[in-house]
């Protein structure tokens, strides 16, 4: 007797109001493709890094509005969804070399920061679960380091900016905060500076020319007898 193929469990989803039945367990992105959508907008890395697939949805019987990434969220029965592939948000133009990284810097470029009413809607909208309101507040009072730290995992999907009643473009503010931190506040790597100087002075040129001319046998010999830097305990002291 032929074995019957197990019935695939299906769920109902509503893509912009239209009902489709898709296999349970798919991500929203794969479910939409299953239903016949071929992405032009709304798909990027498909792995949760690029923010292209921002999706807003509600669940049946639940008034709350949810926001998440289509590529990282599993479909649920009764999901009503729409995608937000683009967020209009003005980015300030600046020359990082000309900015003084003081406590006014962020508010100067993004004065709308002062409109923040602490409603926390941005935090609720963030698919990366960042403390968005906290980094906006840190930016408001000029704490660049804190804003950089809290916003680091931001993928710039735009959901926060779309939901904000004060019309702040959070991720642009955070980008400036992080660049200011990386350039002015984090201490410079001295060893890097020294190595760059050595290279620019040509310290390795002669040896490199010799390396490039070595035969494969010679290289193989050198490669197989390399000493490998041991894996020591990394002291967990990091400039967080």
């Amino acid at each position: 007797m032929a074995k019957k193929k197990p019935e695939m469990k299906m769920v109902r989803i509503y893509i912009m109001g239209k009902e489709y039945k898709v296999p349970a367990g798919l991500t929203i992105m794969k479910a939409m493709e299953y239903a016949g959508y071929r992405y032009i907008r709304g798909a990027g890395c498909r792995a949760g890094f690029c923010g292209a697939c921002a999706t807003v949805y509600r669940k049946e019987g639940d008034y709350k509005l949810y926001a998440d990434l289509a590529c990282q969220t599993t479909v649920e029965d009764g999901m009503w969804l729409v995608q937000l592939p683009f967020t209009p948000a003005n980015k300030a133009t600046y020359d990082l070399n000309k900015i003084k990284p003081d406590d006014k810097a962020l508010v100067n470029f993004y004065p709308e920061l002062a409109r923040c009413v602490s409603c926390n809607t941005c935090t609720k909208a963030c698919p990366q679960e960042l403390d968005v309101m906290d980094y906006i507040q840190a930016s408001l009072r000029g704490d660049i380091a804190k804003a950089a730290e809290l916003s680091f995992d931001c993928i710039q999907c735009g959901l926060c900016a779309m939901r904000c009643p004060a019309e702040i473009a959070h991720y642009h503010v955070a980008q400036l905060a992080r660049r200011l931190y990386g350039k002015y506040i984090a201490p410079k790597a001295k060893h890097l500076e020294e190595r760059v100087k050595e290279i620019e002075e040509g310290k390795y040129d002669e040896e490199m020319r010799k390396m490039m001319k070595k035969s494969i046998e010679e290289l193989r010999e050198m490669y197989n007898s390399r000493d490998i830097e041991p894996e020591e305990e990394e002291e967990a002291k990091e400039a967080d």
Binding site: A114, C116, V117, S118, C119, N120, M133, Q137, L140, R141, P165
Partner: peptide, 18 residues
Amino acid sequence: YCCGTVYSLATDNLMYRL
């Protein structure tokens, strides 16, 4: 968080008291 200063007291909108 920023208290919202006196602007929050001058409006009828409860949101500014958040």
